[in-house]
């Protein structure tokens, strides 16, 4: 191992970076509260240890009543709290869909802008390996279609912390999705508090031949494939939108203007995926920029199966990304 050098950055787990963001905001604003099932113990890990520092009223365990505690945040935010909810698993949003989509997302708009609802709904989400259909969903495509929810999907520990800070400071309902498999990934994260604006994407790897827009857990996959193709002389740019609502289409179009080719990799089912939306928008707004038909890489249109070979077949793989990139170059 190399000798230890003096640096501000430490390598920490993504889940710890989320926790640092939560801790900073609990410290910054006493109206911030964190609720959810077993947030005291925190099985997934983002809220671990917070109850010791902030007490059981600010880090509060709820009954298993997703619809109700998702909805309670609407009333609570309307009268001055800044609730942060740990849903634990992405598909649990479906249990609370009325309160999320009909209430939280719509109350400000329906009231003609009378009220701000600063709420964060965060959760671990997506396939994690044989978790089966009801614990492997990624709900972001569905939620993108609900006007009134901002959606954040960080891919690195650095982004996880900065976007948690921004999400909690934002005066709107924000859905914050942590792909399960990223929770145990390490990366450099500054110790101090910093924020990343919602709606600003990031070029994770510069390249000149093909733009690969990748979302959440698809980002490390796309980077791995890009590094492999470099040896063959194919230069891949990897763009991470980081937030899906609002979506940084300018950054994506700028990248496509440079490369002329587009692949979008989404860790979600193909139909009406974020990949579908991005490809459609680029086709409309940047048709003249494209030298080849854009490609989508996403899951098969089936629930995520349990058995490992079945799961592998239904989800996206490095070779799917590799093939899609080559298709745009053919």
């Amino acid at each position: 191992m190399a000798a230890k050098t003096v640096t501000e950055e430490r390598n920490i787990y993504y889940i710890e970076a989320m926790r640092e963001g939560l801790r900073a905001m609990l410290g910054e604003d006493e109206n911030v509260v964190v609720i959810g099932e077993d947030v005291g113990r925190s099985v997934i890990g983002a809220t671990r240890g917070l109850v010791e520092d902030f007490g059981p009223m600010r880090v509060r365990n709820t009954p298993i009543s997703e619809a109700t505690f998702v909805g309670m945040c609407v009333g609570a935010a309307a009268v001055g709290l800044r609730p942060v909810v740990d849903l634990m698993v992405g598909s649990f949003f479906y249990v609370a869909m009325d309160q999320l989509a009909d209430q939280a997302a719509k109350l400000r708009y329906m009231s003609g802008g009378q009220v701000n609802l600063p709420i964060v709904y965060f959760t671990a989400t997506g396939p994690s390996g044989s978790a089966a259909a009801q614990h492997s969903e990624n709900p972001h495509p569905m939620l993108m279609n609900v006007a009134g929810l901002k959606i954040v999907m960080p891919s690195t520990p650095y982004d996880a912390k900065g976007l948690m800070v921004s999400a909690i400071r934002d005066d709107n309902p924000v859905v914050y999705l942590q792909d399960f498999v990223l929770g145990g990934v390490r990366g450099p994260v500054p110790e101090g508090t910093y924020s990343i604006p919602l709606g600003v994407g990031d070029i994770k790897r510069a390249g000149k031949d093909v733009t690969v827009v990748a979302i959440g857990a698809a980002v490390p996959k796309a980077l791995r494939v890009a590094n492999k193709l470099e040896a063959e002389g194919i230069s891949v740019e990897v763009v991470d939108p980081r937030t899906l609502v609002p979506l940084d289409m300018d950054l994506i179009l700028e990248s496509v203007a440079r490369t002329g080719r587009l692949v979008v990799v989404d860790n979600a089912r193909l139909t009406c995926s974020a990949a579908s939306e991005i490809v459609a928008s680029v086709s409309e707004k940047g048709f003249d920029l494209l030298k080849a038909a854009p490609q989508r890489v996403a899951w098969e249109n089936v629930p995520v199966p349990f058995s490992p070979p079945l799961e592998e077949r239904a989800l996206i793989s490095d070779s799917d990304i590799d093939s899609a990139i080559r298709m745009t170059l053919a």
């Binding site: 099985v43 997934i44 498999v181």
Partner: peptide, 10 residues
């Protein structure tokens, strides 16, 4: 073994 859904390594 894989103890948690987000666990990738140890």
């Amino acid at each position: 073994p894989k103890w948690g859904m987000s666990m990738q390594d140890a």
